[in-house]
């Protein structure tokens, strides 16, 4: 942590001021006033927050902790990293290694359907998964993927679970109409370039640099198409922790919204922190600024809009036969969310 804090520049005060202004604008003056009042008196409650340090879209979380944006909301955030794989965030919360976590909606819903005691409370950000194809494969859109081979870095990688919904929506069976091929994490681009796969999936910032380096055709991502306007990553908290620390989680939701709005306004600052701290894919600050600048941060639903987005995600998961045919998406969405700002 001390290493990350050393990055706080001279303009920290201004940064915080600006961030505060955004936060106030978002969460409403009256509400934030109410929230900030006890913050001075009580010591900051500790929240162990699971995050996917490998994905570009999660970088605002690490940035927010390093720059004290969460601390400003009187929260002591302890980041618990998981890899880009849906089970790890579930396991981190289920085994009590983390109190709250940021995970794909698609990863949360199946265990929640089966009684996992976690409540989702705030949408975090849009997705950073991409599907791309080589020019010579002739793939122009999702329907062209029929019979083609798609490289993935692990079976069930997060962009795979999300984008197979897109493939299903294009009328293909994501299991039988395409061939998934597992290749090492950093060889997805090379596999396509060599012609061993027609297409591939990855997450930013890797996906971005693979597309650029190998001059690939961008087919789909988790921000456009039917994912337009939908949040990809949602914060969830363990049930017992939520009962005991509802106030802290309310501040976490507000801080999280503020952090993402701040990132939208200052992608360069987040990119600088991201490049210096995690050195992803050997990319430059300018590249990371471009990547982060393109991601969606304004989409962080709470309450009824969150329920609606989870209902849509549940419908999608029924389409790819992950959720039970007998599950009612609306009832599930209402059951697994908590209106934290209400």
């Amino acid at each position: 942590m001390s290493k990350q804090q050393s990055h706080a520049g001279v303009s920290r005060r201004n940064v915080l001021k600006a961030a505060g202004a955004v936060g106030v604008a978002v969460s409403g003056g009256a509400l934030s006033g109410k929230v900030f009042a006890p913050a001075i008196a009580a010591p900051a409650p500790k929240i162990r927050l699971a995050w996917g340090d490998v994905a570009a879209c999660h970088s605002p979380l690490g940035f927010g902790v390093a720059k004290g944006l969460y601390a400003k909301h009187n929260l002591d955030i302890d980041l618990y990293p998981f890899t880009s794989n849906g089970q790890t965030v579930i396991q981190a919360l289920a085994t009590g290694k983390a109190d709250a976590g940021a995970g794909l909606i698609g990863d949360w819903l199946k265990p929640l359907e089966q009684g996992f005691d976690v409540k989702l409370f705030v949408g975090s950000h849009g997705g950073c998964g991409r599907l791309f194809a080589s020019a010579k494969s002739g793939i122009k859109d999702l329907t062209d993927l029929k019979g083609k081979t798609i490289a993935t870095f692990v079976m069930g990688a997060s962009p795979q679970t999300v984008l197979q919904v897109s493939i299903a929506k294009a009328g293909l069976d994501p299991n039988t109409d395409v061939n998934w091929k597992t290749v090492p994490f950093d060889l997805v681009g090379e596999t396509i370039a060599r012609g061993d796969a027609d297409a591939g999936i990855h997450i930013d910032p890797w996906a971005w640099s693979i597309e650029k380096k190998h001059n690939l055709v961008h087919i789909a991502d988790t921000q456009t198409g039917h994912y337009e306007g939908l949040t990809c990553c949602v914060l969830g908290a363990n049930g017992p922790y939520l009962k005991a620390n509802k106030d802290a989680l309310r501040r976490l939701a507000e801080a999280n919204i503020e952090v993402h709005e701040y990132t939208a306004a200052h992608p360069d600052e987040v990119a600088k922190w991201y490049a210096e701290t995690l050195k992803p894919a050997g990319l430059s600050i300018a590249d990371l600024t471009e990547i982060l600048g393109k991601l969606v941060y304004h989409n962080h639903p709470v309450g009824p809009p969150l329920v609606e987005q989870i209902r849509i995600a549940a419908e999608d998961l029924k389409l790819v036969r992950v959720l039970d045919a007998t599950t009612d998406p609306k009832a599930l969405a209402e059951h697994v969310t908590v209106n934290i700002l209400a």
């Binding site: 990863d107 199946k110 265990p111 089966q114 996992f116 069930g156 992950v322």
Partner: peptide, 14 residues
């Protein structure tokens, strides 16, 4: 084997 893998990815333990 595929089914187990597929369901594990979504934490569908049942």
């Amino acid at each position: 084997g595929w089914y187990i893998q597929f369901q594990t990815n979504y934490s569908g333990y049942a």
